[in-house]
Amino acid sequence: MTTRPDRAGDAAGVSRRRFLAGAAGALALVGLTACGSGGSGGASASPTAVGGGKRTITTALGPVEIPANPQRVVCVDHYTPGALLDVGVTPVGVADFDTNALLADYVPRLQGLPKVGKSNEAKPEKVAELRPDLVLGTHLAHAPDPNAESYKAFAPTALFAAKTAGDWKDRALQAADAVGRRAEGEKVRQRYEERAAGIKKKYADALARTKWSMVQGGRSGEWALVLPGSWGGVVLVDAGVQFGASSAGQQGTTKNFSVEQMDALADSDVILVRGNSDGSIAAQVKPVLEQPVWQGLRAVKNNRVFPLPYFNTLHYGQAEAMLNKIEDILKQL
């Protein structure tokens, strides 16, 4: 997953007049709801009335006091929606998303929800319209959400730090905890870890005698190795996969090569190419597969090239889907 730099013109999000009007309107709606008579549904009740108290959690931007039982959660990034669905919580609004970046089973459940704008730069007025009692998102130190302070006018805002690609595991648990589902989040994590350990043990022989590489497209005339420390690379590591020499021990998430450098894959017995959520090969990698030198690789000659979805793993549900695919491949080796 590539994060685009923030545009300077987006920093304000909305004009001061529109922002203050939106904030006032949103807060007025919440106030009217809180003053209404009892017996209304959860979406209409006040956050404090339903939540039954507050608690403080740690976030990337410091401690934040949140409802103990939030009812109207808005996700302003593309990480937390999947993590919430993993523990049985559906947000009332989400940032825009690429369907191929989400677990296929979750796409229908999120497509019908109100959208609040781009991931990590949602529109404050769109967030306010949904009357959230909690806003969740991700804090990228190199590209912070320019509207993070604005969300706080409508609801407690918890942004969790993304320090490395593989720490989506920690942030998934933090998101579950924020909505009062930490126990469920722990169970999801345990299920994933047990599944990965089971594959590592069951297919130890096949894993010991094979080297794997993850490949995606790049700029014209280039391709990239996706490395063990990447979002999806950590899932392969957990399953006991050994990476080829050009990937093993490398820092970062990707390493670029020219098409003339396909020999970087020469020792790979299995090549995983970026796939879509439906299992098809992603369009961005197809030019790589059309290179004449590609056809001479050992893995290609042995029919051991497989599309793998969720290279940019966002949550445990996706990671489990990756493990299922990895096991399917191991059965063929």
Rank of each mutant, 00 (worst) to 15 (best):
S119N: 06
R4V: 11
K325P: 05
A128G: 15
E193H: 05
L173E: 07
D86Q: 04
I329S: 03
L84A: 11
D145G: 07
Q251W: 00
T157D: 09
E193L: 14
V305P: 05
D170P: 00
P67G: 10
A155Y: 01
A141K: 02
F257T: 12
S213G: 10
D96L: 12
H78W: 13
A224P: 00
G218C: 07
E260Y: 08
G198Y: 09
A43D: 13
E186S: 06
S230V: 02
A143M: 01
N276K: 13
P67N: 08
R17G: 03
V127R: 02
L333N: 09
A158I: 01
R16M: 08
L130R: 04
Y310H: 12
L272P: 06
R191T: 15
S277V: 07
Q251R: 09
A208W: 01
I281H: 04
D238A: 10
L20P: 00
K325T: 15
I326L: 15
G275E: 01
G9K: 08
Q174S: 14
G36Y: 09
D177A: 15
G112W: 06
P146F: 09
L130E: 02
R219M: 14
E129H: 07
K123P: 00
K152I: 04
M214Y: 05
A23R: 13
E260N: 13
A141N: 01
K118P: 00
V273N: 10
T56Y: 04
R55E: 14
N256Q: 13
G217L: 04
F311D: 03
D238Y: 02
T99S: 12
E290M: 13
P70Q: 06
N303P: 08
F19L: 15
A43F: 11
A175Q: 00
A49F: 05
A204L: 12
A141M: 01
V259C: 07
Q174R: 10
L297Q: 03
L333E: 14
N147P: 01
K325F: 10
E65M: 05
A143Q: 03
V30H: 11
E320C: 14
P292W: 09
K163W: 00
T59A: 08
A239G: 10
P114W: 03
G317A: 07
N324L: 12
W212R: 03
G275K: 01
Q250F: 03
T3P: 00
L289P: 03
D238W: 02
G232C: 11
A208C: 05
N147V: 02
C75Q: 04
K211Y: 10
Y203C: 02
